[in-house]
């Protein structure tokens, strides 16, 4: 059910990928995203597929676990696929009543579909192998050069930490509320769209109330411990780049280089 959503979840482990510095992984993810947008054709996707498969293999996160996290975005991917397939004009392949599938449409649909899947898989590998707390530490550290131009890096990182921290809590809360309303005979699965949307009200109202309550409690708890953002905090576990990270950067450069070369020369 709702708890099955693994998007943004951490999968505990101690693989080479898990042990990389969070900053390396964040940069690697950005590199991967850029590369996916640079990829010009299916050969490029094949290269990226190998890279992604290697990352997944090394990380030892079970494929089943990763794919389970894809379920909620499956419909978005499917929708993009279908829209692209029917909406793009060009050479007609199949005609279904007033709908036509064109060669260009099919090509774009598959291409965009792959792009979306790769983006989501790549981004989820970051969160699957990095503890949320390390992730936000990494983001803060990467953003800190911008502090000079007034970017509140610490506050942003704190907001992100809190948001990530409370995703499971809110999912749990949703699960609890859904079950309580189901016990009162609620039915979320049948009926037309309007009926189903109405059926969500008994979940959403209590959920918002809980969310505000949790936020208020947390704010109170932080304030009563005199939390202040920018007070030259030091870290209990300072982040340090090592030889693994250097290797990571080399591999990244290699991958990005090949992808760009492929775009230019092929």
């Amino acid at each position: 059910m709702i708890r099955d959503i693994t998007l943004g979840q951490y999968y505990p482990g101690s693989s080479w990928i898990h042990r990389l510095d969070p900053r390396t992984k964040i940069i690697a993810t950005l590199v991967f995203i850029v590369a996916i947008f640079v990829v010009p054709d299916f050969i490029g996707f094949a290269i990226s597929f190998v890279v992604l498969a290697l990352i997944i293999g090394i990380s030892k996160v079970p494929l089943k676990f990763i794919l389970r996290g894809l379920k909620p975005v499956f419909f978005i991917i499917l929708l993009t696929f279908i829209l692209n397939m029917f909406m793009i004009p060009g050479e007609t392949l199949v005609k279904l009543g007033f709908l036509t599938i064109t060669r260009q449409g099919l090509h774009t649909a598959v291409f965009m579909g792959l792009r979306l899947i790769f983006l989501i898989l790549g981004a989820s590998m970051l969160t699957l192998t990095t503890k949320p707390i390390n992730l936000t530490d990494g983001i803060e550290s990467l953003l800190s050069p911008f502090k000079k131009v007034g970017l509140p890096a610490h506050d942003l990182a704190m907001m992100m930490t809190i948001a990530l921290r409370f995703i499971p809590t809110l999912l749990e809360e949703t699960d609890k509320i859904m079950k309580a309303q189901q016990a009162r005979g609620a039915d979320f699965e049948t009926g037309n769209i309007l009926r189903r949307a109405m059926a969500l009200i008994p979940i959403l109202v209590p959920l918002f109330i809980s969310a505000f309550r949790i936020a208020q409690d947390l704010a109170m708890a932080m304030e009563s411990r005199c939390y202040g953002g920018n007070m030259a905090r030091t870290r209990m576990n300072a982040m340090k780049m090592g030889s693994n990270d250097i290797m990571g950067f080399v591999l990244m450069a290699l991958y990005l280089g090949i992808t760009i070369a492929e775009r230019i020369f092929m």
Binding site: E173, K179, A180, Q181, A183, R184, P202, V205, P206, S210
Partner: peptide, 9 residues
């Protein structure tokens, strides 16, 4: 349920 008051809407 435990703490059933959260189901009120």
């Amino acid at each position: 349920f435990q703490y059933p008051e959260y189901q009120l809407f």
